[in-house]
Design a binder for these strands. Structure first.
Lengths: 197, 197
DNA sequence: CGGTATCCGTAACAGATGTTACCGTAACGC
DNA sequence: GCGTTACGGTAACATCTGTTACGGATACCG
Protein backbone atom coordinates (compact mmCIF):
# COMPACT_ATOMS: atom_id res chain seq x y z
CA UNK A 1 0.00 0.00 0.00
CA UNK A 2 1.35 3.39 -0.99
CA UNK A 3 2.90 5.88 1.41
CA UNK A 4 0.63 8.80 0.66
CA UNK A 5 -2.85 8.65 2.06
CA UNK A 6 -5.78 8.34 -0.31
CA UNK A 7 -8.40 7.52 2.23
CA UNK A 8 -11.28 6.57 -0.07
CA UNK A 9 -9.02 4.37 -2.18
CA UNK A 10 -7.62 2.70 0.92
CA UNK A 11 -11.08 2.09 2.29
CA UNK A 12 -12.04 0.52 -1.01
CA UNK A 13 -8.91 -1.62 -1.11
CA UNK A 14 -9.59 -2.82 2.41
CA UNK A 15 -13.19 -3.60 1.51
CA UNK A 16 -11.99 -5.64 -1.44
CA UNK A 17 -9.67 -7.45 0.93
CA UNK A 18 -12.69 -8.20 3.11
CA UNK A 19 -14.44 -9.77 0.12
CA UNK A 20 -11.34 -11.73 -0.72
CA UNK A 21 -10.98 -13.20 2.75
CA UNK A 22 -14.71 -13.91 2.91
CA UNK A 23 -14.61 -15.70 -0.44
CA UNK A 24 -11.46 -17.71 0.18
CA UNK A 25 -11.42 -18.37 3.89
CA UNK A 26 -14.96 -17.88 5.09
CA UNK A 27 -16.58 -15.79 7.78
CA UNK A 28 -14.86 -17.55 10.66
CA UNK A 29 -11.43 -16.49 9.47
CA UNK A 30 -12.48 -12.95 8.63
CA UNK A 31 -10.17 -11.27 11.14
CA UNK A 32 -8.61 -7.85 11.04
CA UNK A 33 -5.21 -9.46 10.58
CA UNK A 34 -6.40 -11.61 7.68
CA UNK A 35 -7.89 -8.56 5.98
CA UNK A 36 -4.70 -6.58 6.50
CA UNK A 37 -2.64 -9.44 5.08
CA UNK A 38 -4.93 -9.68 2.04
CA UNK A 39 -4.62 -5.93 1.52
CA UNK A 40 -0.85 -6.03 1.89
CA UNK A 41 -0.71 -3.81 4.95
CA UNK A 42 -0.78 -4.17 8.71
CA UNK A 43 -3.56 -3.98 11.23
CA UNK A 44 -2.36 -0.47 12.02
CA UNK A 45 -3.63 0.92 8.73
CA UNK A 46 -6.92 -0.95 9.04
CA UNK A 47 -7.59 0.46 12.48
CA UNK A 48 -6.61 3.94 11.36
CA UNK A 49 -9.09 3.78 8.49
CA UNK A 50 -11.96 2.28 10.47
CA UNK A 51 -12.87 2.78 14.13
CA UNK A 52 -13.38 -0.95 14.60
CA UNK A 53 -13.91 -4.25 12.83
CA UNK A 54 -17.66 -3.92 12.48
CA UNK A 55 -17.32 -0.58 10.71
CA UNK A 56 -14.93 -2.25 8.29
CA UNK A 57 -17.46 -4.96 7.54
CA UNK A 58 -20.23 -2.42 7.10
CA UNK A 59 -18.18 -0.42 4.63
CA UNK A 60 -17.34 -3.56 2.69
CA UNK A 61 -21.00 -4.55 2.67
CA UNK A 62 -22.10 -1.19 1.36
CA UNK A 63 -19.42 -1.09 -1.27
CA UNK A 64 -20.51 -4.53 -2.43
CA UNK A 65 -24.03 -3.25 -2.89
CA UNK A 66 -22.86 -0.15 -4.70
CA UNK A 67 -20.70 -2.20 -7.04
CA UNK A 68 -23.43 -4.64 -7.95
CA UNK A 69 -25.91 -1.80 -8.34
CA UNK A 70 -23.65 -0.18 -10.90
CA UNK A 71 -23.23 -3.43 -12.79
CA UNK A 72 -26.95 -4.02 -12.84
CA UNK A 73 -27.69 -0.51 -14.04
CA UNK A 74 -25.23 -0.89 -16.88
CA UNK A 75 -26.95 -4.11 -17.91
CA UNK A 76 -30.32 -2.46 -17.71
CA UNK A 77 -29.17 0.51 -19.77
CA UNK A 78 -27.74 -1.59 -22.56
CA UNK A 79 -30.77 -3.84 -22.91
CA UNK A 80 -32.91 -3.33 -25.98
CA UNK A 81 -36.23 -4.38 -24.47
CA UNK A 82 -37.83 -4.59 -21.02
CA UNK A 83 -37.83 -8.37 -21.12
CA UNK A 84 -34.19 -8.47 -22.14
CA UNK A 85 -33.38 -6.10 -19.30
CA UNK A 86 -35.23 -8.32 -16.85
CA UNK A 87 -33.41 -11.41 -18.00
CA UNK A 88 -30.00 -9.71 -17.97
CA UNK A 89 -30.47 -8.42 -14.45
CA UNK A 90 -31.66 -11.77 -13.14
CA UNK A 91 -28.86 -13.56 -14.94
CA UNK A 92 -26.14 -11.54 -13.25
CA UNK A 93 -27.55 -12.68 -9.91
CA UNK A 94 -26.75 -16.30 -10.72
CA UNK A 95 -23.40 -17.88 -9.86
CA UNK A 96 -22.24 -18.77 -13.33
CA UNK A 97 -18.56 -17.91 -13.42
CA UNK A 98 -15.67 -17.52 -11.03
CA UNK A 99 -16.54 -13.93 -10.23
CA UNK A 100 -20.24 -14.42 -9.59
CA UNK A 101 -19.60 -17.61 -7.63
CA UNK A 102 -17.27 -15.86 -5.24
CA UNK A 103 -19.70 -12.96 -5.17
CA UNK A 104 -22.37 -15.33 -3.96
CA UNK A 105 -20.06 -16.80 -1.33
CA UNK A 106 -19.34 -13.29 -0.09
CA UNK A 107 -23.03 -12.42 -0.07
CA UNK A 108 -23.83 -15.46 2.06
CA UNK A 109 -21.00 -14.59 4.40
CA UNK A 110 -22.34 -11.09 4.92
CA UNK A 111 -25.84 -12.44 5.44
CA UNK A 112 -24.62 -14.86 8.10
CA UNK A 113 -22.63 -12.07 9.75
CA UNK A 114 -25.68 -9.81 9.69
CA UNK A 115 -27.54 -12.13 12.05
CA UNK A 116 -25.07 -11.09 14.75
CA UNK A 117 -24.86 -7.39 13.89
CA UNK A 118 -27.88 -5.11 14.03
CA UNK A 119 -26.43 -2.46 11.78
CA UNK A 120 -25.34 -5.03 9.21
CA UNK A 121 -28.83 -6.47 9.01
CA UNK A 122 -30.28 -3.01 8.58
CA UNK A 123 -27.98 -2.52 5.63
CA UNK A 124 -29.05 -5.86 4.24
CA UNK A 125 -32.71 -4.98 4.57
CA UNK A 126 -32.26 -1.62 2.89
CA UNK A 127 -30.36 -3.16 0.00
CA UNK A 128 -32.85 -5.97 -0.32
CA UNK A 129 -35.68 -3.49 -0.44
CA UNK A 130 -34.03 -1.60 -3.28
CA UNK A 131 -33.39 -4.84 -5.08
CA UNK A 132 -37.01 -5.86 -4.72
CA UNK A 133 -38.21 -2.51 -6.00
CA UNK A 134 -35.92 -2.73 -8.98
CA UNK A 135 -37.19 -6.16 -9.87
CA UNK A 136 -40.78 -5.08 -9.52
CA UNK A 137 -40.10 -2.21 -11.85
CA UNK A 138 -38.49 -4.57 -14.36
CA UNK A 139 -41.26 -7.12 -14.15
CA UNK A 140 -43.84 -4.37 -14.46
CA UNK A 141 -42.06 -3.12 -17.57
CA UNK A 142 -41.96 -6.60 -19.04
CA UNK A 143 -45.65 -7.24 -18.33
CA UNK A 144 -47.45 -3.89 -18.51
CA UNK A 145 -50.91 -5.38 -18.13
CA UNK A 146 -50.34 -7.18 -14.85
CA UNK A 147 -51.84 -6.06 -11.59
CA UNK A 148 -49.43 -4.69 -8.98
CA UNK A 149 -50.02 -7.81 -6.88
CA UNK A 150 -49.11 -10.09 -9.75
CA UNK A 151 -46.02 -8.02 -10.50
CA UNK A 152 -44.93 -8.11 -6.88
CA UNK A 153 -45.50 -11.84 -6.49
CA UNK A 154 -43.65 -12.79 -9.64
CA UNK A 155 -40.81 -10.38 -8.87
CA UNK A 156 -40.40 -12.06 -5.50
CA UNK A 157 -40.54 -15.52 -7.06
CA UNK A 158 -37.87 -14.64 -9.59
CA UNK A 159 -35.53 -12.90 -7.17
CA UNK A 160 -35.83 -15.67 -4.61
CA UNK A 161 -35.14 -18.27 -7.27
CA UNK A 162 -32.04 -16.47 -8.49
CA UNK A 163 -30.72 -15.97 -4.98
CA UNK A 164 -31.36 -19.59 -4.04
CA UNK A 165 -29.77 -20.90 -7.22
CA UNK A 166 -26.72 -18.73 -6.61
CA UNK A 167 -26.42 -20.13 -3.09
CA UNK A 168 -26.69 -23.71 -4.33
CA UNK A 169 -24.15 -23.09 -7.06
CA UNK A 170 -21.75 -21.31 -4.72
CA UNK A 171 -21.75 -24.31 -2.41
CA UNK A 172 -21.50 -26.89 -5.19
CA UNK A 173 -20.42 -25.37 -8.51
CA UNK A 174 -19.97 -28.75 -10.17
CA UNK A 175 -23.56 -29.75 -9.46
CA UNK A 176 -24.98 -26.48 -10.77
CA UNK A 177 -23.12 -25.50 -13.92
CA UNK A 178 -23.91 -22.25 -15.70
CA UNK A 179 -26.01 -23.93 -18.39
CA UNK A 180 -28.23 -25.58 -15.78
CA UNK A 181 -28.84 -22.30 -14.02
CA UNK A 182 -29.62 -20.47 -17.25
CA UNK A 183 -32.01 -23.20 -18.33
CA UNK A 184 -33.75 -22.79 -15.00
CA UNK A 185 -34.00 -19.04 -15.45
CA UNK A 186 -35.38 -19.34 -18.96
CA UNK A 187 -37.89 -21.97 -17.87
CA UNK A 188 -39.11 -19.65 -15.13
CA UNK A 189 -39.42 -16.63 -17.43
CA UNK A 190 -41.25 -18.78 -19.93
CA UNK A 191 -43.60 -20.16 -17.27
CA UNK A 192 -44.52 -16.70 -16.05
CA UNK A 193 -45.01 -15.47 -19.58
CA UNK A 194 -42.01 -13.15 -19.46
CA UNK A 195 -39.81 -14.81 -22.07
CA UNK A 196 -38.48 -12.87 -25.03
CA UNK A 197 -40.28 -13.06 -28.35
CA UNK B 1 -27.69 -32.21 32.39
CA UNK B 2 -28.14 -35.48 34.17
CA UNK B 3 -25.37 -37.31 35.96
CA UNK B 4 -25.73 -40.59 34.14
CA UNK B 5 -24.38 -40.69 30.64
CA UNK B 6 -26.73 -41.15 27.73
CA UNK B 7 -24.31 -40.36 24.98
CA UNK B 8 -26.69 -40.18 22.02
CA UNK B 9 -29.11 -37.99 23.97
CA UNK B 10 -26.30 -35.71 25.08
CA UNK B 11 -24.97 -35.44 21.57
CA UNK B 12 -28.44 -34.50 20.40
CA UNK B 13 -28.90 -31.96 23.19
CA UNK B 14 -25.56 -30.39 22.31
CA UNK B 15 -26.51 -30.28 18.66
CA UNK B 16 -29.74 -28.51 19.56
CA UNK B 17 -27.67 -26.08 21.57
CA UNK B 18 -25.59 -25.46 18.45
CA UNK B 19 -28.75 -24.61 16.52
CA UNK B 20 -29.89 -22.36 19.33
CA UNK B 21 -26.67 -20.37 19.43
CA UNK B 22 -26.56 -20.20 15.65
CA UNK B 23 -30.14 -18.90 15.52
CA UNK B 24 -29.85 -16.39 18.34
CA UNK B 25 -26.24 -15.21 18.26
CA UNK B 26 -24.94 -16.02 14.81
CA UNK B 27 -21.97 -17.91 13.47
CA UNK B 28 -19.40 -15.55 14.91
CA UNK B 29 -20.46 -16.26 18.47
CA UNK B 30 -20.77 -20.01 17.93
CA UNK B 31 -18.07 -20.94 20.42
CA UNK B 32 -17.70 -24.08 22.46
CA UNK B 33 -18.43 -22.09 25.59
CA UNK B 34 -21.59 -20.57 24.13
CA UNK B 35 -22.83 -24.01 23.11
CA UNK B 36 -22.08 -25.41 26.55
CA UNK B 37 -23.92 -22.52 28.20
CA UNK B 38 -26.94 -23.04 25.92
CA UNK B 39 -26.94 -26.73 26.79
CA UNK B 40 -26.62 -26.04 30.49
CA UNK B 41 -23.28 -27.75 30.92
CA UNK B 42 -19.61 -26.87 30.77
CA UNK B 43 -17.05 -27.12 28.02
CA UNK B 44 -15.81 -30.28 29.71
CA UNK B 45 -18.85 -32.28 28.67
CA UNK B 46 -18.77 -30.88 25.16
CA UNK B 47 -15.16 -31.89 24.65
CA UNK B 48 -15.78 -35.32 26.14
CA UNK B 49 -18.64 -35.92 23.71
CA UNK B 50 -16.85 -34.60 20.63
CA UNK B 51 -13.17 -34.71 19.77
CA UNK B 52 -13.20 -31.06 18.72
CA UNK B 53 -15.39 -28.17 17.74
CA UNK B 54 -15.63 -29.08 14.07
CA UNK B 55 -16.95 -32.55 14.91
CA UNK B 56 -19.61 -30.91 17.06
CA UNK B 57 -20.69 -28.73 14.16
CA UNK B 58 -20.73 -31.67 11.80
CA UNK B 59 -22.93 -33.68 14.12
CA UNK B 60 -25.30 -30.75 14.53
CA UNK B 61 -25.41 -30.32 10.78
CA UNK B 62 -26.21 -33.95 10.18
CA UNK B 63 -28.85 -34.05 12.87
CA UNK B 64 -30.46 -30.99 11.29
CA UNK B 65 -30.69 -32.81 8.01
CA UNK B 66 -32.06 -35.94 9.62
CA UNK B 67 -34.69 -33.94 11.47
CA UNK B 68 -35.89 -32.08 8.42
CA UNK B 69 -35.84 -35.27 6.37
CA UNK B 70 -38.18 -36.90 8.86
CA UNK B 71 -40.51 -33.92 8.85
CA UNK B 72 -40.60 -33.90 5.06
CA UNK B 73 -41.27 -37.61 4.85
CA UNK B 74 -44.18 -37.29 7.25
CA UNK B 75 -45.63 -34.53 5.10
CA UNK B 76 -45.14 -36.59 1.99
CA UNK B 77 -46.77 -39.64 3.57
CA UNK B 78 -49.86 -37.78 4.71
CA UNK B 79 -50.48 -36.06 1.38
CA UNK B 80 -53.42 -37.30 -0.64
CA UNK B 81 -52.04 -36.52 -4.08
CA UNK B 82 -48.65 -36.05 -5.72
CA UNK B 83 -49.30 -32.36 -6.25
CA UNK B 84 -50.35 -31.89 -2.68
CA UNK B 85 -47.22 -33.69 -1.55
CA UNK B 86 -45.07 -31.42 -3.72
CA UNK B 87 -46.67 -28.31 -2.34
CA UNK B 88 -46.45 -29.48 1.28
CA UNK B 89 -42.78 -30.31 0.97
CA UNK B 90 -41.95 -27.01 -0.70
CA UNK B 91 -44.02 -25.11 1.82
CA UNK B 92 -42.09 -26.46 4.79
CA UNK B 93 -38.93 -25.08 3.20
CA UNK B 94 -40.25 -21.55 3.50
CA UNK B 95 -39.66 -19.39 6.58
CA UNK B 96 -43.26 -18.83 7.64
CA UNK B 97 -43.26 -19.18 11.41
CA UNK B 98 -40.87 -18.81 14.30
CA UNK B 99 -39.56 -22.32 13.95
CA UNK B 100 -38.95 -22.29 10.22
CA UNK B 101 -37.47 -18.79 10.38
CA UNK B 102 -34.89 -19.83 12.92
CA UNK B 103 -34.36 -23.01 10.92
CA UNK B 104 -33.47 -20.88 7.93
CA UNK B 105 -31.10 -18.75 9.97
CA UNK B 106 -29.40 -21.91 11.18
CA UNK B 107 -29.21 -23.28 7.66
CA UNK B 108 -27.53 -20.11 6.41
CA UNK B 109 -25.11 -20.21 9.32
CA UNK B 110 -24.08 -23.77 8.48
CA UNK B 111 -23.72 -22.87 4.83
CA UNK B 112 -21.44 -19.95 5.67
CA UNK B 113 -19.44 -22.16 8.02
CA UNK B 114 -19.14 -24.81 5.32
CA UNK B 115 -17.10 -22.47 3.12
CA UNK B 116 -14.32 -22.77 5.70
CA UNK B 117 -14.66 -26.48 6.44
CA UNK B 118 -14.16 -29.13 3.78
CA UNK B 119 -16.04 -31.83 5.64
CA UNK B 120 -18.95 -29.52 6.35
CA UNK B 121 -19.30 -28.64 2.70
CA UNK B 122 -19.22 -32.29 1.74
CA UNK B 123 -22.11 -32.88 4.13
CA UNK B 124 -23.95 -29.95 2.60
CA UNK B 125 -23.45 -31.29 -0.91
CA UNK B 126 -24.63 -34.75 0.02
CA UNK B 127 -27.74 -33.40 1.72
CA UNK B 128 -28.44 -31.04 -1.14
CA UNK B 129 -28.15 -33.89 -3.59
CA UNK B 130 -30.70 -35.92 -1.67
CA UNK B 131 -32.97 -32.89 -1.48
CA UNK B 132 -32.70 -32.37 -5.22
CA UNK B 133 -33.48 -36.01 -5.91
CA UNK B 134 -36.49 -35.88 -3.64
CA UNK B 135 -37.85 -32.83 -5.40
CA UNK B 136 -37.28 -34.35 -8.80
CA UNK B 137 -39.22 -37.40 -7.70
CA UNK B 138 -42.04 -35.22 -6.41
CA UNK B 139 -42.16 -33.08 -9.53
CA UNK B 140 -42.06 -36.19 -11.68
CA UNK B 141 -44.98 -37.59 -9.71
CA UNK B 142 -46.91 -34.38 -10.11
CA UNK B 143 -46.26 -34.17 -13.86
CA UNK B 144 -45.95 -37.74 -15.16
CA UNK B 145 -45.72 -36.73 -18.81
CA UNK B 146 -42.76 -34.41 -18.54
CA UNK B 147 -39.34 -35.26 -19.89
CA UNK B 148 -36.61 -35.88 -17.32
CA UNK B 149 -34.96 -32.61 -18.36
CA UNK B 150 -38.13 -30.66 -17.77
CA UNK B 151 -38.62 -32.35 -14.40
CA UNK B 152 -35.07 -31.59 -13.37
CA UNK B 153 -35.21 -27.97 -14.47
CA UNK B 154 -38.49 -27.22 -12.74
CA UNK B 155 -37.41 -29.06 -9.59
CA UNK B 156 -34.32 -26.87 -9.44
CA UNK B 157 -36.35 -23.73 -10.06
CA UNK B 158 -38.76 -24.56 -7.28
CA UNK B 159 -36.15 -25.61 -4.74
CA UNK B 160 -34.01 -22.56 -5.45
CA UNK B 161 -37.01 -20.30 -5.12
CA UNK B 162 -38.00 -21.79 -1.78
CA UNK B 163 -34.48 -21.59 -0.43
CA UNK B 164 -34.05 -18.01 -1.58
CA UNK B 165 -37.40 -16.95 -0.17
CA UNK B 166 -36.54 -18.55 3.15
CA UNK B 167 -33.25 -16.64 3.21
CA UNK B 168 -34.99 -13.35 2.45
CA UNK B 169 -37.64 -13.98 5.07
CA UNK B 170 -35.10 -15.05 7.68
CA UNK B 171 -33.23 -11.78 7.25
CA UNK B 172 -36.35 -9.63 7.15
CA UNK B 173 -39.45 -11.43 8.45
CA UNK B 174 -41.56 -8.27 8.43
CA UNK B 175 -40.95 -7.71 4.73
CA UNK B 176 -41.76 -11.30 3.80
CA UNK B 177 -44.77 -12.46 5.81
CA UNK B 178 -46.07 -16.00 5.50
CA UNK B 179 -48.94 -15.04 3.21
CA UNK B 180 -46.55 -13.38 0.76
CA UNK B 181 -44.33 -16.42 0.60
CA UNK B 182 -47.26 -18.77 0.12
CA UNK B 183 -48.69 -16.60 -2.63
CA UNK B 184 -45.33 -16.78 -4.33
CA UNK B 185 -45.23 -20.54 -4.02
CA UNK B 186 -48.73 -20.95 -5.41
CA UNK B 187 -47.99 -18.57 -8.27
CA UNK B 188 -44.94 -20.64 -9.17
CA UNK B 189 -46.78 -23.96 -9.02
CA UNK B 190 -49.54 -22.46 -11.13
CA UNK B 191 -47.09 -21.08 -13.67
CA UNK B 192 -45.37 -24.43 -14.11
CA UNK B 193 -48.70 -26.21 -14.40
CA UNK B 194 -48.27 -28.01 -11.09
CA UNK B 195 -51.13 -26.46 -9.12
CA UNK B 196 -53.80 -28.58 -7.54
CA UNK B 197 -57.09 -29.14 -9.33
C1' DC C 1 -19.23 -52.57 51.33
C1' DG C 2 -14.86 -51.60 48.88
C1' DG C 3 -12.54 -51.16 44.58
C1' DT C 4 -12.76 -49.58 40.04
C1' DA C 5 -14.02 -47.38 36.09
C1' DT C 6 -16.56 -43.74 34.12
C1' DC C 7 -18.34 -39.28 33.88
C1' DC C 8 -17.88 -34.43 33.85
C1' DG C 9 -16.68 -30.03 35.98
C1' DT C 10 -12.46 -26.99 37.03
C1' DA C 11 -8.76 -24.90 35.73
C1' DA C 12 -4.99 -24.17 33.10
C1' DC C 13 -2.54 -23.53 28.64
C1' DA C 14 -1.03 -21.64 24.22
C1' DG C 15 -2.47 -19.17 20.57
C1' DA C 16 -5.49 -15.90 18.31
C1' DT C 17 -8.28 -11.65 18.30
C1' DG C 18 -9.89 -6.76 18.65
C1' DT C 19 -8.08 -2.70 20.13
C1' DT C 20 -4.84 0.77 21.96
C1' DA C 21 -0.57 3.29 22.63
C1' DC C 22 3.60 4.50 20.95
C1' DC C 23 7.15 5.79 17.68
C1' DG C 24 9.80 6.18 13.43
C1' DT C 25 9.38 8.36 9.07
C1' DA C 26 7.96 10.71 5.08
C1' DA C 27 5.54 14.67 3.19
C1' DC C 28 4.60 19.64 3.42
C1' DG C 29 4.73 24.67 4.69
C1' DC C 30 7.80 28.42 5.94
C1' DG D 1 16.77 23.18 5.24
C1' DC D 2 13.91 22.71 9.20
C1' DG D 3 10.05 22.11 12.13
C1' DT D 4 5.53 20.34 12.08
C1' DT D 5 2.08 17.19 11.06
C1' DA D 6 -0.02 13.16 9.88
C1' DC D 7 0.49 8.57 8.20
C1' DG D 8 1.14 3.92 9.22
C1' DG D 9 3.92 0.19 11.16
C1' DT D 10 5.31 -2.22 15.75
C1' DA D 11 4.30 -3.99 19.66
C1' DA D 12 1.79 -4.47 23.65
C1' DC D 13 -2.71 -5.23 26.15
C1' DA D 14 -6.63 -7.71 27.89
C1' DT D 15 -9.77 -10.87 26.44
C1' DC D 16 -11.49 -14.79 24.21
C1' DT D 17 -10.93 -19.33 21.91
C1' DG D 18 -10.06 -24.32 21.30
C1' DT D 19 -8.03 -27.83 23.66
C1' DT D 20 -5.78 -30.52 27.34
C1' DA D 21 -4.84 -32.21 31.96
C1' DC D 22 -6.36 -33.12 36.32
C1' DG D 23 -9.44 -34.25 40.21
C1' DG D 24 -13.57 -35.12 42.63
C1' DA D 25 -17.77 -37.53 42.53
C1' DT D 26 -20.77 -41.07 41.21
C1' DA D 27 -22.40 -45.44 39.42
C1' DC D 28 -21.38 -50.22 38.78
C1' DC D 29 -19.71 -54.83 40.16
C1' DG D 30 -18.00 -58.47 42.93
Amino acid sequence: MSRTADRPAQGEALSRAVWEVLAEQGLERLTVRAVAAAAGCTTGLVMHRFPNRRALLRHARELLHETSRRRVEALEASATSPREALRAVLRQGLAIDEETISGSVVWIGFLAAAFADDELIEIHRGNNRLWRERLERLVGGAAPNWSPERVSTVALALSAMVEGAAAFAAADPAAYPAATQERMLDAALEAYGLANG
